[in-house]
C-alpha cells in the first residue's frame, strides 16, 4: 500500500487516488484544424517514463487534482503540488 500526499488532505492511502495522465498534456484547439497525427498523439501517446515521472492524479476523496512527481521504479514520491490551470 503506497501513500500519496494530497496538498489538501495530507498523506492518504493509494486507494483514494486515481492516475489521470501525464502532466503537461495540452488538448489541441479543436476549433482549428487538427491533424490526425496531432490528435492521435494527444489521445494515445504517453511519456511512460521509467524513473522520474511527472503525472496528474486525482484524490477522489476531495476531488482535487494534483501534480505528482514520482519514481516509477522505486515508487518514491518526489514532490506534489496543486494542479490548477496555468500552473503546469
Amino acid at each position: 500500500m503506497q501513500r500519496f500526499p494530497c496538498p489538501f488532505c495530507g498523506l492518504r492511502d493509494e486507494t483514494e487516488f486515481f492516475y489521470a495522465g501525464d502532466l503537461g498534456k495540452v488538448r489541441p484547439d479543436t476549433t482549428q484544424p487538427v491533424s490526425d497525427e496531432e490528435w492521435s498523439a494527444y489521445l494515445n501517446d504517453y511519456a511512460n517514463v521509467k524513473g522520474r515521472a511527472k503525472e496528474v492524479w486525482v484524490h477522489t476523496a476531495c476531488q482535487e487534482y494534483l501534480a505528482l512527481e514520482r519514481d516509477t521504479v522505486t515508487m518514491d514520491v518526489l514532490s506534489v503540488t496543486q494542479f490548477r490551470k496555468g500552473e503546469i
Binding site: M1, Q2, D13, E14, T15, F18, Y19, N48, K50, A53, E55, T72, V73, T74, M75
Partner: peptide, 13 residues
C-alpha cells in the same frame, strides 16, 4: 495494479 510502474512487484490493494 492501479499505479503506473516498472517495479515488477505489486502492492496490497
Amino acid at each position: 495494479d492501479r499505479i503506473p510502474s516498472y517495479a515488477q512487484k505489486g502492492n496490497m490493494p
